[in-house]
């Protein structure tokens, strides 16, 4: 598959602060690529260097084969950018804003089509400040599609939204991806990256600490699963620990959590063990680890939400 974006040793400094420190990765055509990390990790700066909004100090960025530092205008013609918390002109209607922005590009999508897609057609003649948070966010994404871009950049598209509005945006981003566009997004929501992204780069302290598909990242954890089980009687902790594939045990009020590397080995052993003692197991479930656990494992810290 072709690489749509090639980032090679990208470095950006603000005074003595190194915001992005030698970051390299590629984004393939037609994938949803996520940059995940806590606030201040350098996600937005990385994105803005790729978009040509900021000039990087070292390294090279190619978008659709064009160097963003040398020909930022050319790059901007083919990409769509949605900025973190960017409002639009107060005194223009949604249609007028879309018409205005479309006028900056050689290739345009009619405002009606865009508004229809994000379900804001009945708001066409209102101004941005009269929209709700979710509507506003949908509108900014619609506005980033005015030039029918090949690559779409979304900077924290769902930050500050309620779960329902977030879901709506997720479905919408999936739709955009289905049209064959490449999507690059930043987020600090693990479940968002897991739900939307084909591949995820985890950033911390200006560097990429892990990069792969969410499934691979999780699978590579030493203990990628947890087995949860409840029992009316006491299960001896030492015996549980001795079961195949179990790395650790925690229990509370008859609810047990086993850290497990391979549930296919652990589950039969657990069931056998219970049968042998004549005990019934309740609420048995296998829970996969999340990107949250990956972050914890790679950085030793919780992701601040």
């Amino acid at each position: 598959m072709d690489a749509v974006i090639q980032v090679d040793s990208l470095t950006k400094r603000f005074g003595s602060l190194v915001a992005v420190d030698g970051v390299s990765f590629e984004v393939k055509k037609g994938e949803v690529f996520g940059i995940l990390g806590p606030n201040g990790a350098g996600k937005t700066t990385t994105l803005e260097c790729i978009e040509g909004l900021q000039k990087h100090d070292a390294g090279r960025v190619l978008v659709l084969g064009v160097d963003t530092r040398h020909e930022p205008e050319k790059v901007k013609t083919h990409i769509g950018i949605q900025l973190q918390a960017s409002a639009y002109f107060d005194y223009l209607t949604l249609t007028e804003i879309l018409e205005l922005f479309a006028a900056f590009y050689p290739r345009r999508v009619p405002p009606v089509d865009l508004l229809q897609r994000v379900g804001l057609i009945e708001k066409a003649r209102t101004t941005v400040n009269k929209l709700s948070g979710g509507q506003k966010q949908r509108f900014t994404i619609a506005a980033s599609l005015v030039n029918d871009p090949e690559v779409l950049f979304l900077d924290e598209p769902t930050t500050g939204l309620d779960p329902q509005a977030r879901r709506q945006i997720w479905e919408f981003i999936r739709g955009i991806h289905k049209e064959g566009r490449t999507v690059v997004l930043t987020t600090h929501y693990m479940e968002e990256a897991q739900f939307l992204c084909h591949r995820v780069a985890i950033m911390d302290h200006a560097k990429i600490v892990a990069l792969d598909t969410p499934a691979n990242l999780i699978r590579r954890l030493p203990v990628p699963y947890e087995v949860h089980v409840s029992c009316a009687h006491v299960l001896p902790e030492a015996e549980l620990k001795a079961l195949a594939g179990v790395h650790g045990v925690a229990h509370e009020n008859g609810n047990y959590r086993l850290q497990v590397s391979d549930p296919t080995q652990t589950l039969p052993a657990l069931i056998d063990c219970a049968k042998g003692k004549g005990l019934t197991l309740e609420h048995l479930e296998v829970v996969s680890a999340t990107l949250e656990d990956v972050f914890l494992a790679t950085t030793g810290r919780q992701l601040r939400d």
């Binding site: 909004l53 205008e73 050319k74 013609t77 960017s86 002109f89 922005f101 590009y105």
Partner: peptide, 12 residues
Amino acid sequence: QKIFKRILATPL
């Protein structure tokens, strides 16, 4: 409101 930045994001 970062409108300048939004303009900067276009080829204009």
